[in-house]
Write a protein that binds this DNA or RNA. Structure first.
Lengths: 222, 222
DNA sequence: CCAAAAGTGTTATTGATACACCCATGC
DNA sequence: GCATGGGTGTATCAATAACACTTTTGG
């Protein structure tokens, strides 16, 4: 409890965010270009130091809001990275979160802050600062795993959506085509969806029924 | 990066450990009695501050070794808790790990250190210090979930074991009886096991074949 | 009438569940 | 010979996978 003990570490604590969206049949991740050393000029996951009185999740939400303007997206703690040498200067422990945002909710493709931000293909990212490539890979794996057994994919869709849109989200995440009939059967059998009653007749083809997600499942331990 | 900014937090960083074993058909967790304030005299999860140059996992392993003498047990990061008020004195962020130890490996039921340590039934714990009841509940849920789809239960068994022992581990974790024939069929079909060739003829009944676990699966994202 | 996506069922295969008796040993 | 746990197979049911054509709209 006494911080003056020489052997104890008082690391900096940051929160980093792996922010996904699906756009143009691609899983994309938001990156920011670092203005300062270390790794000045390189792309990195958005993040920041924990503020006084702020919970970890609040910090993650703050970062998300600063970079995208979005507040109420799906957010989940991912993992905590704390290797002694992961920051070349001070010891930094970072609690990482991953978040899902529907592409349609992003008013601006970039940021409302001065710093440079941009979307990249998540599975083929550039060389990132720190251990951020590792963190990103970890997040992609988690997303894929959860897509298999949870309703997490709904975080990437707007309120009302077509079943085909939903299917495409799954196909992009899992990187494999799915059978249309089996997909619809299974997804409707889960009871996660209801028809909104509205239809989307915007395309040059047969109009589609719109569905919405009923409610998030209770969070498991995971 | 500059710690003098008034709004940044420099929380203490600890590692806490949820150490499980299965003994006497019970899922048990290791607790230590706190010697100091806050919560002096109350039971708590074993843990400690991060030391200089020590990775998070090393810290967890150190705590485990200090309390049990065991080094090479299954260890996995669980979750990071950092609510601003979770420690009544300083702001503390704790990275929690959960570990599995075969009962047979525990030479001493308690500790080799002075502090008082003891095993408790994990699903009916006493009132714990800090937010440790919540952490323990989280760990139990994770363990149950992983028992359903992973080979994690092997962390609770010695090198060589009978299928009945293995089944009992699952039954204790999942809190439900399993059908013997179906269990054996499924578990052998996974390919996780081989017969050691040895048999256990120690009981007053028909001798049992001994099996061992082949290799740990590749770690997923969890 | 052509292009484009929406919508819809059946069969085969696979995996999960339910269920009861004989075997080998120690005492 | 009795108590104790070890060991084995089959039939049913549920879930998953494979597979192709018709419908409705806009242009």
């Amino acid at each position: 409890m006494n911080n003056t003990y020489y052997a104890y570490e008082m690391p900096g604590v940051t929160v980093d965010l792996v922010l996904f969206t699906v756009n143009q049949d691609q899983l994309q991740v938001l990156l920011t270009r670092r203005a300062e050393e270390p790794f000045a000029g390189q792309w990195a996951l958005p993040g920041g130091f924990l503020l006084k009185g702020e919970s970890l999740e609040d910090a993650a939400r703050r970062v998300m809001h600063d970079k995208t303007g979005v507040v109420d997206a799906y957010l989940e703690q991912l993992y905590t990275f704390g290797e002694p040498d992961r920051d070349p200067r001070n010891r930094i422990v970072t609690i990482t979160y991953f978040a899902l945002i529907p592409w349609q909710k992003l008013s601006r493709p970039g940021s409302r802050k001065v710093s440079e931000v941009s979307w990249f293909e998540a599975v083929r990212p550039p060389n990132l600062a720190f251990d951020h490539n590792r963190i990103l890979g970890y997040a992609v794996n988690r997303l894929r795993a959860k897509a298999g057994y949870s309703n997490i994919a709904f975080g990437l869709l707007p309120e009302a959506f077509r079943l085909t849109e939903l299917q495409r989200i799954y196909e992009v995440i899992l990187e494999q085509p799915l059978d249309k009939r089996n997909f619809r059967k299974r997804i409707l059998a889960t009871g996660w969806l209801t028809e909104t009653g509205a239809i989307d007749d915007s395309g040059a083809h047969r109009p589609a029924r719109l569905y919405r997600f009923i409610k998030r499942d209770v969070e498991f331990s995971d």
